[in-house]
Simulated scan of single mutants.
Amino acid sequence: MKREHTIQSLGTLVQLRTLDVDRLQADLASQEATRTRYQNNLARLDALATGSGATGTLPPALALNCGAYKQNVMAMADLHRTDLALHEANMAVAQRQLTAAWTRRELLGKVLEQQQVQLAREQDRIMRKREDDIATQSWLAGRTA
């Protein structure tokens, strides 16, 4: 009875660890989508800065305006790059957490599997002993009759 309770408790723990792994996987997928958005935004900002053309061929007022525009776009791109780097660092932490959670879940799964195998062996041993006892009683009853 005690081993069955242990198996039931381990099963519950494995389910909880699986939920934790699933939650961390969903979180990491969300972070990956955010990273993709950052990368797409950076590509667009780079295209905007490049697409505004050369400022040297424009009249002075337009050149000043275009230069300020490019400077602002490049500053925004730099901020996005910094945010992306921080986000990727957070993603690395989340990936390590996911790996650790997955390892914990697998280890508990192995322990659960071992306990189940031991219980099956124990139940098989009890069943064989019972069958042997019945066979012995049957054989003894046949000898005395």
Rank of each mutant, 00 (worst) to 15 (best):
A94D: 03
D22F: 07
Q118M: 09
L42I: 15
A135F: 09
L108F: 15
W139C: 05
L16A: 13
Y38D: 06
R128G: 00
E106P: 01
E32A: 15
N65V: 00
R3Y: 01
V111N: 08
E88D: 07
A61R: 05
R130W: 01
L13C: 06
H80K: 12
P60I: 01
P59V: 00
T99Q: 11
S9T: 09
R37D: 14
N40Q: 13
G51I: 04
L86T: 14
T103A: 12
E4M: 08
E106Q: 14
N72T: 11
V117T: 15
T103N: 14
K129Q: 10
T82A: 14
T36R: 09
L24W: 08
V117C: 08
H87T: 11
K110L: 07
S138I: 01
Q31M: 15
N40E: 10
A29Y: 08
L64D: 07
Q115C: 06
E32F: 07
L79G: 13
Y69I: 02
A141N: 13
W102N: 13
R44G: 03
A49T: 08
L13D: 08
E32P: 01
T36F: 03
D124V: 00
N40P: 00
A29V: 12
L28S: 05
D22C: 02
G11T: 12
Q116V: 06
A120H: 11
Q25T: 15
P59C: 02
S138P: 00
V73C: 05
T55R: 00
Q97T: 07
Q137V: 01
G56T: 05
L16V: 03
Q114N: 10
Q15E: 07
A77K: 06
T82P: 02
L86K: 14
